[in-house]
Design a protein around this nucleic acid. Sequence first.
RNA 1: GGUCGCGUGGCCGAGUGGCUAGGCACAGCUCUGCAAAAGCUGCUACUGCGGUUCGAAUCCGCACGCGACCUCCA
Length: 493
Amino acid sequence: MSDPKKGPLYITNTLSRRKEEFVPLRPPHVGLYVCGPTVYSDVHLGNVRSFLTFDVLYRWLTHLGYKVRYVRNITDVGHLVGDIDEGEDKIAKRARLEQLEPMEIVQKYTNGFHDVMRLFNLLSPSIEPTATGHLIEQIGMVERIIKSGYGYEANGSVYFDVPKFAEKHAYGELSGRRIDELLTNTRDTEGMEEKRSPLDFAIWKKAEPQHLMKWPSPWGEGFPGWHLECSAMSTKYLGGTFDIHGGGMDLKFPHHECEIAQSVAADGHVPVRYWMHGNMLTVNGRKMAKSEGNGFTPEELLSGNHKLLEKGYSAMTVRFFMLQSHYASTLDFSNAAMQAGEKGLERLMAAMTVLGKLKPGALDGADVTALEKRCYEAMNDDINTPVMIGELFEGVRIINSVNDGKLTLTATSIERLSTLMNTMVFDVLGLKQEQQIAGDDRAMDGLVQEFIRMRAEAKARKDFTASDAIRDRLTALGIILKDTKEGTAWERA
RNA sequence: GGUCGCGUGGCCGAGUGGCUAGGCACAGCUCUGCAAAAGCUGCUACUGCGGUUCGAAUCCGCACGCGACCUCCA
């Protein structure tokens, strides 16, 4: 980018397992694809972490001046439940249980997903394509794979021939798997006689009679394989090869590995230049997952009404808590850590309010330029939000010191600090003020100011019994008074 | 069983060869009528055992502990 303080950006590419300088294919444009949710149940906090990781990446790329096309899909063709059922579509299964149309389920949980994204202040993607809306593209891709010789039909289903593909192309590169090891580790394939190899995966699946979501195809009634939608839709909206593909660590294999194979087989080139994977949110050291039953919904989180929660936490507390660890590290959820995050966020946000009221001085007692530089370096070093937040607390210290008259900053530096803090806290980290601050509600503020005046009068005549009574009663109502040199401020608890 | 990764102070969590991360908690101090808020100060760790190096939390090996994916499967 033209502004030297802003670049270059380094990100960890799963393909090389190293930090690489990010150079877009067609600057200033950047194509970003992120695997979205499967809309057959509520998203839980672990899912949110993954989407949050790429939300911040999207925000940062945008801040750096890139024109980002951010595509995040909705998987509304069912996946298998896996170890529970016998090949029944997840969405169809849910539908029968709840006596709903499949698309009703899809709509319900898509709406819920959007609500959660809004709650945690995640930006909307540029395009949010659905799998059901792209059947033609997916069928086209299956045809191209068959044509290239890497797909074969068996009994109405079409499978991807992994061993044949691996003869001429890399398979397992992304996830560090070797085809011979995969074969060695695979058990008997009984019941899967349609497949030529246990490593083969379906790219089109024949629909059983009871299956509700199905479409006509050259191979009969069926539905697309679950790796296919991302390949078809990313190709459609971002091109045959695009810049960044993100997703949770658990999608590396087989999902993303299969995506690569499909694109190479269908179109002859690798689809993605930089693969990025976010790590898992854990609870007591275990991955938060639907199958573990250790997830909670946003409602439970906010209310604290869940056995894992000692109390409720605000969405921004959660967002801040998550950003205090690096996206590539596992993060363990605990009440103690949440409460620490809650306190830290309060201090940060309080400073943001103070920031707007700073009075300039003649000299600079702090180096804002250096602070700014460190913030950019942290973000450019693989989106290191925890380090960046550490720097922001240096900013908090400066702000409060200036406010206390213990440090001075020139008007220019205050302006610069203000821009930096506001940009990083609100635009990049995507935090927002949740607490009602004084002044938001004029009637309320007027009332409280009246009490503050009464208390000041009591204090002036040394009637501390009366002044403390006023303060204590306001505290009991959730109004906290803070005495400063300029007078008394208030905030809600 | 295979592959990959992790193990940091009271808690959370950065850090990849020498330089105090940061947050929370705790203690003391300043300010204050008291409190709160804020600032300052203190608490200085890196699973164990070997090795490389002038020097290792950071590199290598082994051990122990933990996790993710795969091992059933679209």
